[in-house]
Nucleic acid binder design. Structure first.
Length: 552
DNA sequence: AAAAGTTACAACCGCGACGCC
DNA sequence: CGGCGTCGCGGTTGTAACTTT
C-alpha cells in the first residue's frame, strides 16, 4: 500500500545510533520497560528493522518479549511483533490495493465487520493494519462524498460478537450459487452497473462480485430466490426474486466455520472457462430484475448536492411510536418487507441480540449517511421505520425519512419502497428488524412481483454467535420488492444481469450446510434470464477465493 | 511561496483471550 | 481456580506527505 519509504527508511540512522536516537526523542518516543530500560517508541529505523529481521530469522516468530532481551533492540515485544507483522514479514504486499483486493475488503467488511485480522486472511500479503487503514480511509472518503459505504447491491453482514448482532444485507443482484460437491462455485457479479451514469461511485466498479446469497441459494438449492443475509439492522429484500425458503436451516455453528482444508469454494465469473460454469445457467443463478436499479436513480445514498449538515436521523428506538409507521403504510417499509421475506408475521423468529453492530466504523459511516439522507429534503417527508430486535423484542425504531418524491424521480415504474429506501436503511445503523406487519401488501400485489416470491419461514438461524457470523434473520433488501419486470422497463441496468456471489459468505458458511440440508430443486424461476445475466459480466482477475486462506 | 487543510499510514494503546504454573 | 505472562486484535493517535487556498 505504501510505496513510499517509511520515515525510518528515508532517514536511516547508523545502527550504533539506534538507541541514543530513541532517548533523545520526545516523550512519545520512549517508555520505560519492566526492567527499567528505556524502550524506544515511534518510527522504526532501518537498523532496527535489520536487527529484528535477523532475530526472527534465528529464533522465529513469537516470544516477542524476548526480542528485546536477546537482540538488544530497545523495543517492547509488542512493538516488535507489530513491526514484523506489518512491515518486515516476508511476502507482504506493498503498494496500493488492487481492485480485486478492494472488492474483497468491501465484501468482507460487509460480512464480518471490523474483523481486520480475519479479513487479512483472505488477502494474502496484506495485513490487518493495512486493511483497517484502507477501510477507515474509505469511510472518510465516502462520508465526505455522501456515498454509500457499500455498493447498493452488496450483501453484507456484520456481526456483533457480543450480542451476536448481525448485519446482513442482500444485494439486489443476488443470485444463487452452484453447489458442486463440497465446493461452491460462486458466480461473480459485477458492480459495473453501479457506475452507470454515476461517475461519483468510483468505487462501484471495483467491487467484488461476491454474493452472500449464493450460499443460501446453495443450501436450499433454489436458485432463484434472494437469500437472506443479515444486514446491519436492516432487512433487505432481493429484487424480483423467486424466493422459496425452507425452514430448518442448520445452526450457524454447523457451517459458519469450516475447519481449514474442508471448505472450498470458488468464484466463477462469466468468462470463467470452468466448464462448471454452465451450471450457473442450469441452476438459474439469476433473478430477473436484479441489478435493476441504476444507482443514479435509485440510490438514496447518492451524493446529495450541496453541503449537508444535518441532524442525525432519528435512530432512537421508538417502541411505541406507531405513528412512525403511518406514512410507511402507503409505502412498504423495510420492516414490512421483512415480514414477507423473513417469515409469516406470526412466525417471525428473530434471535435475541440479533442486531447491534459493533463495528464502530461501520456504524459511524452508516449514521453519517443516514444523517445526510435524512437531512435532505428529498427524504424529508416520509418517515420510515425500522425496528430493532433485541432479546426477542421487536422494537421499532424510526429510522429515516424517505421522501416519496424520491420515487417520483425515477423514470421507470417505481415501487414505493425502492432502492433509495433500501440504501438508506441498509446503511443506517439503527437496528432494524422486522416489524412485520403494517399493511404491507402481499407480494402478489406488488408490482412486478408476479414472480413467485415464497416467503421464507422460520429463517432464524440459531447459534449464530459462533465466529460472530451469526446470521439470524435475514434481512432483505426492499429492492426485492421491485419486480423484475417493471424494473427492466425502466432500467437498463436491469438487463445487466450481474451475478453477485459471495465468496465470503460461502466461506463462512461452509459446505456442511449444504450437506445437511435437503436441497430443493429449483424449479420456478426465471430461467429466461439466467444465462444472460451471467454473460453480462466481464469482471476479471477476481481472486479465486478457494485459494485464499480460510478463516481461522 | 506560505499557510491551512486533508489524506494516508505507521505505530501505540488498551483490552481480552489463551496458556501455563 | 486464580495469577501471571504472552499474544493478538481493534481502536486511536501522531505525523509526513500531499493538496488546496
Amino acid at each position: 500500500m505504501n510505496l513510499l519509504p517509511t520515515k525510518s527508511e528515508k532517514e536511516p540512522i547508523a545502527e550504533d545510533n539506534i538507541f541514543s536516537h530513541s532517548i533523545d526523542e520526545g516523550s512519545r518516543e520512549k517508555s520505560i520497560g519492566k526492567d527499567g530500560q528505556v524502550l524506544k517508541k515511534g518510527p522504526w529505523t532501518s537498523a532496527e528493522d535489520a536487527i529484528l529481521v535477523e532475530y526472527v530469522k534465528k529464533h522465529g516468530e513469537g516470544n516477542w518479549n524476548a526480542v528485546q532481551k536477546n537482540s538488544g533492540l530497545f523495543r517492547c515485544g509488542k512493538s516488535c511483533r507489530l513491526r514484523w507483522a506489518n512491515h518486515l514479514k516476508p511476502n507482504l504486499k506493498k503498494g496500493a490495493f488492487s481492485m480485486e483486493e478492494e472488492e474483497m475488503i468491501v465484501q468482507l467488511h460487509a460480512k464480518i465487520g471490523n474483523k481486520w485480522a480475519k479479513m487479512a486472511t483472505f488477502l494474502p500479503g496484506r495485513t490487518d493494519n493495512e486493511i483497517k487503514n484502507y477501510w477507515n480511509t474509505r469511510i472518510k472518503r465516502h462520508q465526505r462524498a455522501g456515498l454509500p459505504l457499500y455498493p447498493n447491491n452488496i450483501c453484507f453482514q456484520a456481526s456483533d460478537e457480543n450480542q451476536q448482532t448481525q448485519i446482513v444485507s442482500c444485494v439486489a443482484q443476488q443470485h444463487s450459487g452452484i453447489l458442486q460437491g463440497n465446493s461452491f462455485d460462486i458466480p461473480g457479479t459485477g458492480f459495473e452497473n453501479l457506475n452507470n451514469g454515476h461517475a461519483d461511485l468510483s468505487y462501484a466498479s471495483s467491487f467484488p462480485d461476491l454474493s452472500v446469497s449464493s450460499m443460501i441459494c446453495h443450501e436450499y438449492e433454489s436458485p432463484d430466490y434472494g437469500y437472506m443475509d443479515n444486514v446491519n439492522h436492516v432487512k433487505q429484500v432481493d429484487a424480483g426474486c423467486d424466493a422459496t425458503f425452507y425452514s430448518g436451516p442448520p445452526s450457524a455453528s454447523q457451517f459458519l466455520m469450516e475447519p481449514p482444508g474442508q471448505l472450498t469454494f470458488r468464484l466463477h465469473y462469466p468468462y470463467d472457462p470452468d466448464p462448471n460454469f454452465k451450471d450457473l445457467a442450469t441452476f438459474g443463478g439469476e433473478i430477473p430484475g436484479r441489478h435493476a436499479f441504476p444507482i443514479d436513480k435509485f440510490s438514496a445514498s447518492r451524493p446529495l448536492s450541496g453541503a449537508v449538515k444535518l441532524e442525525l436521523p432519528s435512530l432512537q428506538c421508538t417502541e411505541t411510536d406507531d405513528s412512525s409507521w403511518t406514512l410507511c403504510h402507503s409505502t412498504p417499509t423495510l420492516d414490512a418487507v421483512n415480514t414477507y421475506v423473513e417469515s409469516s408475521p406470526t412466525t417471525v423468529s428473530l434471535q435475541p441480540e440479533a442486531i447491534s453492530p459493533r463495528s464502530s466504523g461501520l456504524l459511524d459511516a452508516l449514521l453519517h449517511e443516514a444523517q445526510v439522507l435524512s437531512g435532505s429534503k428529498r427524504y424529508s417527508s416520509l418517515k420510515c421505520s425500522s425496528s430493532v430486535i433485541k432479546h426477542n423484542e421487536m422494537v421499532e425504531c424510526s429510522g429515516l425519512n424517505i421522501s416519496e418524491t424520491e420515487w417520483e424521480d425515477y423514470n421507470g415504474p417505481t415501487y414505493p419502497l425502492g432502492h433509495s429506501a433500501a440504501s438508506v436503511l441498509k446503511e443506517c445503523t439503527p437496528p432494524v428488524c422486522g416489524s412485520l406487519s403494517h399493511g404491507f401488501p402481499p407480494f402478489k400485489d406488488i408490482p412486478g412481483s408476479q414472480n413467485t416470491f415464497a416467503v421464507a419461514e422460520h429463517l432464524s438461524i440459531p447459534n449464530m454467535e459462533e465466529e460472530n457470523l451469526s446470521s439470524h434473520p435475514d434481512f432483505y433488501r426492499p429492492d426485492a420488492l421491485l419486480g423484475s419486470d417493471w424494473l427492466e422497463e425502466g432500467s437498463q441496468v436491469a438487463k445487466d444481469h450481474s451475478v453477485l456471489s459471495d465468496a465470503v459468505t460461502t466461506t463462512l458458511l461452509g459446505h456442511d450446510f449444504c450437506k445437511e440440508h435437503k436441497i430443493v430443486p429449483a424449479g420456478t424461476s426465471s430461467d429466461h434470464v439466467r444465462g444472460t445475466k451471467l454473460e453480462s459480466h466481464s469482471r476479471g482477475k477476481i481472486p479465486d477465493v478457494s485459494q485464499m486462506p480460510e478463516l481461522p
